[in-house]
Design a protein around this nucleic acid. Sequence first.
DNA 1: TGACAAACGGAACGACAGTTCCGTATGGTG
DNA 2: CACCATACGGAACTGTCGTTCCGTTTGTCA
Lengths: 217, 217
Amino acid sequence: MSTSSRAPAPAEPSGDQLAEGAAGEPPSGERPLRADARRNRERVIEAATEAFAVEGLAVAMDDIARRAGVGVGTIYRQFPTKETLYVAIIRRGLDQVTARARALAAAEDPGSAFFDFLRELLETVAAKRELVEALASAGTDLKSMAPATEAEWHEAVGALVERAQQAGAVRPDVQVPQVLALLGGTCGAVMHAHLEGDARAQLAAVVCDGLRCPPAT
Amino acid sequence: MSTSSRAPAPAEPSGDQLAEGAAGEPPSGERPLRADARRNRERVIEAATEAFAVEGLAVAMDDIARRAGVGVGTIYRQFPTKETLYVAIIRRGLDQVTARARALAAAEDPGSAFFDFLRELLETVAAKRELVEALASAGTDLKSMAPATEAEWHEAVGALVERAQQAGAVRPDVQVPQVLALLGGTCGAVMHAHLEGDARAQLAAVVCDGLRCPPAT
DNA sequence: TGACAAACGGAACGACAGTTCCGTATGGTG
DNA sequence: CACCATACGGAACTGTCGTTCCGTTTGTCA
């Protein structure tokens, strides 16, 4: 050993590059990225999304590159690590549902807004089951890889839940963290059990009923 | 996925080792295993359980061997594959909860039997969070790796649920598969969100209420 | 107690897959 | 239309692991 240790060092977590520069959509705050680069970035994300869905998280970077019609080097210029690549994809997806949550938070009926959100989320996840399953298996800690995305998600759901509680549509004794956990768990249930159509709706109904205010008592 | 068990010269699978001999508890139907072998088998399972919990599913077999105080070869004599090793551990755990379900199925009050089971399950899973999380990340298809174990689990829970429904303690419109899914999802929620103590109980309450018959209406 | 099958240990083997490197191509600009 | 920073491709490099092999040790049985 000793000697030239110029090895693929495990990509140390070193501090703040994770904070924002590692894997946002485009390089939000930086110099504007050449045209071909931007095009390729998009292609890579697209290809990776499909590859992860079809082959699982374990697809080789070479495969992703081939699907995208680029060289591996091109991927690594935008995503310094395989992890940053799938975190970027996770972000994208999470941002979408967060946006939906925010939109619903402005609805007139806070109660149905929340429950609709839950049902929609289940549908969305079921529709992309393979991909979500793959990404979930990463075991990535979003809180450290994409703090902002994570925070916004929590915040958006929190708002939805609290409004629903104030309107008396959701029992007041549940905390937002529990709801978040339940959302995740229910998504997991739908995916792993391959619940389709009615079965899925039924499960949603059970969870919704549990969350709803106990009518009397 | 993972673990591409690709041998240089695959030769022949020589028999359906998956079917039954691969990873049961002791070699249930075969010749009686020498004393040291039985001892080592136990040590290996013990060590692997701890290793998976502490280091995750990705621990090297060499690590497990070291922890167990044996050579890798010894592991491979009992568990032809890494996968068969953790499937054995999964089986063991699942058999335990199945046994508990069966015990509760004989209780006087079918309703509280079922709900107690759910709560207990959540406690158990929370107590072994690290291990369960690791094993869950395997993405192993139990139905094909341990059909009997899987079937018995379904059957035991099914019985519990159906009795509770007949007693009017669980809403009659949910199917057993949904309950199984919900059980799994709730465990996942508790683990991923690190819900502790009260938060866990609260979540359990929500799920139980959802499953309970809507009092009136 | 002697003999033999069963079991052991652990070095060695192979293969895979993430990451790096560098010569070449190209978009953008003055 | 040059010029060059930026980007590209993809072969090559490496560390890591699962798995195998085989000489040695040990339990068991007559």
